[in-house]
Design a protein around this nucleic acid. Structure first.
Length: 827
RNA sequence: GCCGAAGUGGCGGAAUCGGCAGACGCACACGACUCAAAAUCGUGCGGGCUUAGCCCAUGUGGGUUCGACUCCCACCUUCGGCACCA
């Protein structure tokens, strides 16, 4: 053992670990289990710092918990289906599966160089038929349970990706992946009925007390529950037609002065058919429908509406109000029709103003407040009902209830809860995904592929660059099939599934990745699930984390698993920045993990990533900080090396004496064990755990410098160094392994028990107590631990300065924090 | 606009239950070693002043308390999410 050379020791130990398979986990009900999971990556072929950060965090926990005696499941795999592979394949003229296999090989090698302790026996790949067979099986389960359905709908279409997108995948009107503006197209599409689970997905957020608040709030907003009423208005000119509207404010029903329909509303064409308004209205409708999401939903774009010439009848007052069509009402929320109450709604008010629609106030602010709705602004708060017939005088809260009840009696309204969440559109018009296992037969209609015929295999990729969308539609051998019911000629569905489906259940597959007769083994899932600690980026706060929760609930309902929530504890790790900007190719500020491993070693890189910031906060990459961590590891190495050189002399020299210096070192050691354990286990505060180990190293240096070499306590030094190495093992696994060996440790450092601290070693006989006068620090004193209040005060008074300050003052009060502080309040 | 998180030295950050603000690291300065440099080791390092000490200081202004980075109220700034959702 000479100078610290990570380039030599790291590959050596990685190889050894792989051979010995310490990280292999199997079901063992006699031991407590712990499932640590990092979000599996999309195999782009290049590992970036964000990856290195998640893996470092996960690995510290996995290694620490193993040393704590847990049976730890720590798997890794590949979210391998998806557009980038398909696009790369087209560009480089290779098949997506070959491109993916190559990327996985590259990334896996990069991961292994980081020394992360995965159980590679559990590796999964969502694009392999062994896996997607079960993704298809789960789709059929959804179908059987009435949760998968096909419908023609206007959907988000990304012209660049040449596919439709789910609502969750459209951000402010742009495609989440390529930021192309999304268009609307009509298509027959498959949906999953996630809205059936809206209420449970929302309510069960309360069970997730170890999830970050911000993630739960984001999901809550996304689900967007609103309580109110659905109210039906009859059309005056067509007594057989009704227009239901959704409102959160049924109490304002008497203030309705108009009704607005979305351009897509099915009634529009009937209302204007054959009238002189027809052309104008239908032109308007066509124009609005052509507008992009951005144009239609931007707040700046003006609210434009058009009178249809028809009227709606208020179900309670009987009043006839005009029906308009407008661009600001969207068909996919509520009923696609809105009642206009300009006196009590900001948006209705604006709209009424520009079209000179009447404003009728029906809610008066409570007496304390002033300023109801006026000609200048609406009043949107609660209050007392006026101009509302028999409901006058009620509070708006009671009124909302009473009006809805009344409507219910009359059969033209009911209580209703609406969600912003829409059903999950899962069809994708691309090749590189799991085929949707459905068959269309002219006689039998839509028929599911029988389970025993799964998987529906992707045909080998030929030419993907063609214009035929979806690509699977030009593989005749794929499309043409026979109907499982009548045996006649039939066609396969040619869309593939959204890759978010693959990642909605992968954590279950890891429990028994080789299971062949079911997606997962029940016993294994019962043992390992839920995931105790899930770690990943905040960008999945709504997408993946909501979908995975949905799948878990469906599987629970189907009796296949025993948990209703997949992830007990979630850590949303921060991003990696450099020079004030997120690391990105376009900014040119990328540092690759490979580069760091080559220059400093994986241990240094891991240590820096964990030391530079708490895991949930953004991290600022700083080369000098990396060097600092490298320097620290060299200092550790140096101590171990020195100790070895002392060994031959040990027989003759050194002592076993515990003097004050030794007691201090012991105290430092046990205090550090205590702190590091708590910091990892309870707080996830890796940065402070590492700083505590650094302090211990400084303490050892101090001891060695200040104590005559002849008098140094060798056995205490050995104990200290061994414990120090154990504390470091989860963070810098290679260095720890090598140092453990050098210090005469047996077996792998990673198979040792985590050190326990000795409470008697940290109990202190003498403490420093701070003396405050009127809350300001005016002195300190060393006293035996447990000194009484009286004695503390006496001793404090004995100090010249304190005596002077107390001179002639009256002591009003004394506050004592035992062994810490005394505060003397004087006047 | 609504919701959420956060504001502490030159920088990353610490202070875990209301009890010594700035642990640990980086940068910087000085010293030792060296012919010299690097590496290493040591010392110092929030600001001010009339410097044995005192005053100011955790985004701003108030409050509670013997005592506030920590609790309460109001505001400012930054970042993130949602956003014509009826």
């Amino acid at each position: 053992m000479k100078g610290y050379d990570p380039q030599t020791i790291e590959p050596k130990w990685q190889q050894k670990w792989a051979e010995e398979q310490f990280d292999h986990a199997s079901v063992d009900p006699s031991r407590p289990k712990y499932y640590v999971l990092e979000m599996f990556p999309y195999p782009s072929g290049k590992l970036h710092m964000g990856h290195m950060r998640v893996y470092s965090i996960g690995d510290v926990l996995a290694r620490f918990l193993r040393m704590r005696g847990y049976n730890v499941l720590h798997p890794m795999g590949w979210d391998a289906f998806g557009l980038p592979a398909e696009n790369a394949a087209i560009e480089n003229r290779v098949s997506p599966d070959r491109w993916t296999a190559q990327s996985i090989a590259q990334m896996k090698q990069q991961q292994q160089r980081l020394g992360v302790s995965y159980d590679w026996e559990k590796e999964i790949n969502t694009s392999s038929p062994d896996y997607y067979r079960w993704t298809q099986w789960l789709f059929l389960l959804m179908y059987r349970r009435g949760l998968a359905y096909r419908k023609r709908a206007a959907v988000n279409w990304c012209p660049y990706c040449q596919t439709v997108l789910a609502n969750e995948q459209v951000e402010a009107g742009l495609c989440w992946r390529c930021e192309t503006e999304v268009e609307h197209r009509e298509r027959e599409q498959w949906f999953l009925r996630i809205t059936d689970y809206a209420e449970r997905l929302l309510n069960d957020l309360a069970l997730l007390d170890e999830w970050p608040e911000r993630v739960k709030v984001m999901q809550q907003n996304w689900i967007g529950r609103s309580e109110g009423a659905e109210i039906s208005f009859r059309v005056k000119e067509f007594p057989d037609e009704e227009i239901p509207v959704f409102t959160t404010r049924p109490d304002t029903l008497f203030g309705v002065t108009y009704l607005v329909l979305a351009a897509e509303h099915p009634l529009v064409s009937r209302l204007v058919a054959g009238t002189k308004k027809e052309k104008e209205v239908m032109d308007f409708v066509a124009r609005v429908r052509r507008e992009t999401e951005i144009e239609r939903t931007s707040e700046e774009s003006p609210k434009i509406g058009l009178f249809t010439g028809r009227h709606a009848l208020n179900p309670l007052s009987g009043e006839a109000v005009p029906i308009l069509v407008a661009n600001y009402v969207i068909m996919t929320y509520g009923t696609g029709a809105v009642m206009g109450v300009p006196a009590h709604d900001e948006r209705d008010f604006q709209f009424a103003r520009s079209y000179n629609l009447p404003v009728q106030a029906v809610i008066q602010p409570p007496e304390m407040e002033t300023g109801g709705s006026t000609a200048d602004r609406p009043y949107t708060g609660e209050g007392i009902m006026i101009n509302s017939g028999e409901f006058n005088g009620l509070s708006s809260i009671d009124g909302a209830k009473r009006i809805t009840e009344k409507l219910q009696e009359k059969g033209c309204g009911q209580f209703k809860t609406t969600y912003r969440l829409r059903d999950w559109l899962i069809s994708r018009q691309r090749y590189w995904g799991a085929p949707i296992p459905m068959i269309y037969c002219d006689r039998c209609g839509t028929v599911p592929v029988p389970e025993k015929e799964l998987p529906v295999l992707l045909p080998p990729a030929a030419d993907l660059s063609g214009d035929r969308v979806p690509p699977l539609s030009h593989y005749d051998s794929f499309v043409k099939t026979t109907c499982p019911e009548c045996g006649g000629a039939a066609q396969r569905e040619t869309d593939t599934m959204d890759t978010f489906i693959c990642s909605s259940w992968y954590f279950l597959r890891y429990c028994s990745p080789k299971q062949t007769n079911l997606p997962f083994d029940r016993e294994a899932v019962n043992y390992w699930m839920p995931v105790d600690q899930y770690i990943g980026g905040i960008e999945h706060a709504v997408l993946h984390l909501l979908y995975a929760r949905f799948f878990t609930k469906v599987l629970y309902d189907a009796g296949l698993i025993g948990v209703e929530e997949p992830f007990s504890r979630l850590l949303a790790q921060g991003m990696v920045y450099k020079d004030g900007a997120k690391m990105s190719k376009s900014k040119g500020n990328v540092v690759s993990p490979d580069e760091i491993v080559e220059r400093y070693g994986a241990d240094t890189g891991r240590l820096f990533i964990l030391f530079a910031a708490p895991p949930e906060k953004d991290l600022d990459w700083n080369e000098q900080g990396v060097e600092g961590c490298h320097r620290f590891l060299r200092r550790v190495w140096h101590l171990v090396e020195e100790w070895r050189e002392l060994q031959p002399a040990a027989a003759g020299g050194g002592t076993g004496k515990i003097g004050p210096a030794e007691a201090e070192l012991q105290r430092a050691l046990h205090g550090t064990i205590k702190k590091v354990t708590r910091d990892i286990e309870e707080r996830f505060s890796f940065n402070t755990a590492i700083s505590a180990v650094m302090e211990l190293v400084n303490a050892v240096y101090d001891y060695r410098r200040k104590t005559d070499p002849e008098k140094q306590n060798r056995s205490l030094l050995q104990e200290t160094l061994q414990s120090l190495i154990l504390l470091l093992a989860p963070f810098t696994p290679h260095l720890a392994e090598e140092a453990w060996l050098a210090l005469g440790g047996r077996g792998s450092v990673h198979q040792q028990s985590w050190p326990e601290y000795d409470p008697s070693a940290i109990s202190i006989e003498e403490v420093e107590v701070v003396i405050q006068i009127n809350g300001k620090v005016r002195g300190r004193m060393r006293v035996p631990a447990g000194t009484t209040e009286e004695n503390l005060l006496k001793k404090a008074r004995g100090q010249q300065r304190i005596g002077e300050l107390l001179e002639g003052k009256k002591v009003v009060r004394r506050i004592v924090v035992p062994d810490k502080l005394i505060n003397i309040v004087v006047r």
